[in-house]
Design a protein around this nucleic acid. Structure first.
Lengths: 261, 261
DNA sequence: TAGTGGTCTAGACCACACG
DNA sequence: GTGTGGTCTAGACCACTAC
């Protein structure tokens, strides 16, 4: 395990010291010289190894944190990130969070943060096609765990008529499973996927560093009569989750193509 | 526009100064007191305003950068991020990047970085169902622009028989449009979506800060005979892009449900 | 030339983990 | 207590932008 000091005149022209250091550590991590879960030398030691100040070492470590390669724990050290990935299918029943977890060898659980009646925001009222603009709805927030690691924050909005008969169950289980058990069948959904950096609030809920990518799964689920039953979003740790789908293009939309250059 | 100095004894117990400062600035940004595109006070001025050292101001600004709220430009200043979002449909023909751009009022263009024959990696050979494990394939990398802003890096692998007749066009246009114009029809695809933080390399291609979330759209596209035609991934800036889909659940998979708790 | 953000230093003190 | 990462300071110099 050898390191290369790079002060005064660097080889690669004008590359900052903290970049040279973090790239060198990154290479060692990706080569497996530091295994997932293992500890890096302390900031003090790294400063001595590379011959730089602690400030510069800390900047290099920050670079690695932002790339998701290491995490720090106060009083303990700097640890190489362990890799996990759970796939969720969008083609099949979409919100079988618990079934997908179990199928892939994880124990899923739920912590309810909030379940309360409130006024619908204009956006939620529109998505749930509520008659009055400020109708009462149920607002639920819960955290999904895989093997005791928080992996997702789910925010769900239910019409009153749907949530009240199932209130007790909804506060304990996964959304979709509970609805099906309550004979509320979902036959379709409009969804969108995007990604956002974790805010301070989200980073505390999901135990990730500030700014870590989170996948946002937005959904509005319908019954067979196109009546919206539930809408909301699931913000999941992108280092743990991934969404899959199978797409069939039976009839290529040639008009659409005609528009393109 | 008023600021609150918070040194020595902070109100909120034990909140670091840099967090207090970044949260206060965040609030002003989200309230619209600093409009998108406008400049914040300089680091020197912010230090004077809040009564802290420049190091602490820089840490606070870093917090905002990681949350995607501001970007910095050396010699110019700190600027509030402008919001854009382009939607791409996964249900309809999936790789109509250019049509989706045009439809949403953006001018799309492509810069080809690489188009070369190379040996297929084991993973690519498997996805393209190539007979020999190390068959020759075409490897293309290109950057997609929306109104001169780089928004995605696309990495595509083609079997030799597909790419060679269309080589000239493939190097100039969008993948899917070019294939269709070359009478290579795609009838389905297996896709997955995840998110990763930008590495130094990706942050340079896409002009984003280190660690910014990128959406990764992995795909293997098939012809009607299930023969893979193309595979690859599109890494797109999550501050510019979002994927949508409509899901139909005609026959809820009850066996699958039976497995869940 | 003046103003901006980027890099780097040396040093102090605090909060947390572990034995 | 010792060692770890977290916070914060004061100050220096550099690189880039704009006038």
């Amino acid at each position: 395990m050898t390191f290369f000091m790079v002060p005064s005149e660097q080889l690669s022209d004008r590359q900052p010291l903290h970049v040279a250091i973090s790239e060198q550590l990154k290479q060692k991590i990706e080569a497996g010289e530091y295994e997932p879960g293992s500890r890096l030398p302390s900031e003090f030691d790294l400063g001595a190894i590379f011959g730089v100040s602690r400030t510069t070492v800390r900047k290099a470590i920050t670079n690695l944190i932002q790339q998701g390669l290491v995490t720090t724990q106060q009083g303990k050290g700097i640890f190489v990130t362990e890799k996990h990935k759970i796939s969720f299918s969008m083609s099949n029943p979409l919100m079988y969070f618990d079934a997908a977890l179990k199928q892939q060898g994880f124990v899923g659980s739920v912590q309810s943060l909030r379940f309360q009646l409130t006024k619908a925001s204009p956006e939620v009222a529109r998505k749930l096609q509520l008659p009055q603009p400020l109708a009462q709805i149920y607002w639920q927030e819960k955290i999904y765990y895989a093997n005791d690691t928080p992996i997702a924050l789910d925010i769900t909005y239910y019409p009153q008529a749907i949530a009240e008969p199932l209130a007790a169950d909804l506060q304990q289980g996964f959304t979709y499973s509970t609805l099906v058990k309550g004979n509320v069948l979902l036959n379709g959904a409009k969804v969108s996927l995007e990604s956002v950096p974790a805010t301070y609030e989200l980073s505390e809920y999901l135990a990730v560093p500030l700014g870590m990518p989170l996948l946002v799964f937005n959904y509005v689920a319908y019954q067979s009569d196109r009546q919206p039953v539930v809408c909301g979003k699931t913000l999941s740790r992108s280092d743990w989750t991934c969404y899959t789908a199978e797409i069939d293009v039976d009839q290529p939309d040639l008009n659409f193509l005609g528009e393109s250059r």
